[in-house]
Nucleic acid binder design. Structure first.
Length: 116
RNA sequence: CAAGCGGGCUGGACAGCCGCGCGGGGAGGACGAAAGGACUCCCUGUGAGGAAAGUCCGGGCUCCACAGGGCAAGGAUAACGGGUAACACCCGCCGGGGGCGACCCUAGGAAAAGUGCAACAGAAAUAGACUACCGGCCUUCGGGCCGGAAAAGGUGGAAAGGUGAGGUAAGAGCUCACCCGAUGGCUGGGAACAGCCCAUCGCUGUAAACUCUAUCCGGAGCAACGCCGUGGAGGGACAUACAGGCCGGCCCGGCCGUCCCGGGGAGGCGGCUUGAGCGCGUCGGCAACGGCGCGUCGAGAUAGAUGGCUGUCUUAGAUGACAGAACCCGGCUUACAGGCCCGCUUGCAAU
RNA sequence: GCUAGUGUGGCUCAGGGGUAGAGCAGCUCACUCGUAAUGAGCAGGCCGUGGGUUCGAUUCCCACCACUAGCU
């Protein structure tokens, strides 16, 4: 990913859960916070409740793909955490993408020329 | 054709675009005297499993302990022969159990070394007598007392070998015939074991109760372990000021240097993938497996790389069966939609 | 990744081969004008699941499932 590195430390995740802005759909919950860095940082959470390792890996890859293919449409300089919920295992990719973009728009991360 | 038994293989394939980890090659390149080289781009190779899982056994490897051996404690295994680096695994075979059969299951040493336990029921649970049987005596004819015997009844998971005959007052392996079991002998077999017109005997079960016998086992685990290591704290050496900076309105006062050392938190590097490897052929062996020859290299991530979209094909259905390497092997166990192949059994029909 | 431990009434726990128990909670009755407390009584369990050993398993053995804790 061009302008994004991954978010790794547990305390950074916790800070976003407490202080970040959030938006929720049946597929994911997204937390974000402006940092002022030139790059954005993305963290993906796939909890144990989602299932075994294969299911968790699959969900994580699809979320990363959602972010990667739409990265040019987002503002940079944010910390973003995407938490997968149970229905994200069985959802269609197009459904997931629509839901993901709607949440990002709700958080004012979509660039303005993308408005329909 | 139907029903069934055993074994093996497979676990979607192909193409295009975007994207990821690692290896190789090439180009540019901040910095640097150079060696090198952060980073960027291009080409190319390669990229999860049969169970990668559970972590139940056995090893390799590393460190610690003992550095020779024995005993004890604790744990594991348990017919026999073989395979293996080793095993609780595998193969063969024996015994036992199930199935008409193909075949399946089997922790399968010792209870006559000793100790313990066996509730309830039952007269009695490892030893003796409730009912009933027989004999003698007594009798108020209901039965009572003494003795014999251990076959019948009932209880129980288990009641002292089983069936028949003889025998007797009634009975009893008391005697006989056959059968069953144990021990010894003989024969066969490499052995477990099997057989016998041989001899002696008739002994409850439980060791996944303690125990005994035989064999094996030191402990921890790659987050092991080794190396590098900015800063901060400690020690040593050098320098020492009347200068400068910071705290402070000012004075007074306090703090602040460079180099080396060892331990080492965060972090980084190695360990990290060529190995009891895989494929084919051949030879030995019933087989597990082993010998030889030829060929071949098939992930090494470090919050964890295989995804998304489209099309074609197989298919009833591929938005999915079960499921993700984390130091590496050999097994076991558990989960699993389908599909394919081989061998065999029983029944029916036809020849 | 590794190492331990625990599953028993609604809840917290005993029981370690022989009919499954305690406290709290629940229900009924008594006491009270009524409630609480107290007293008497009652019901509630495939002992996490499946096999095995045994005459007999909650207990012993094996394999699974779920949960908890520790190391890092």
């Amino acid at each position: 990913m061009e302008h994004t590195v991954s978010l790794k430390q547990n305390h950074e995740f916790r800070r976003l859960y407490q202080k970040g802005k959030s938006a929720v759909s049946p597929y994911f919950a997204i937390y974000c916070r402006r940092t002022g860095r030139p790059q954005s940082r993305l963290g993906i959470t796939t909890g144990v409740k989602l299932g075994n390792a294969v299911k968790r890996n699959r969900v994580r890859r699809r979320i990363r793909e959602l972010y990667r293919t739409n990265e040019h449409r987002f503002f940079s300089g944010y910390d973003i955490v995407v938490v997968a919920r149970t229905r994200a295992i069985f959802g269609r990719y197009s459904e997931l993408e629509r839901s993901f973009l709607r949440l990002m728009k709700k958080l004012d991360l979509l660039k303005s020329e993308e408005k329909e």
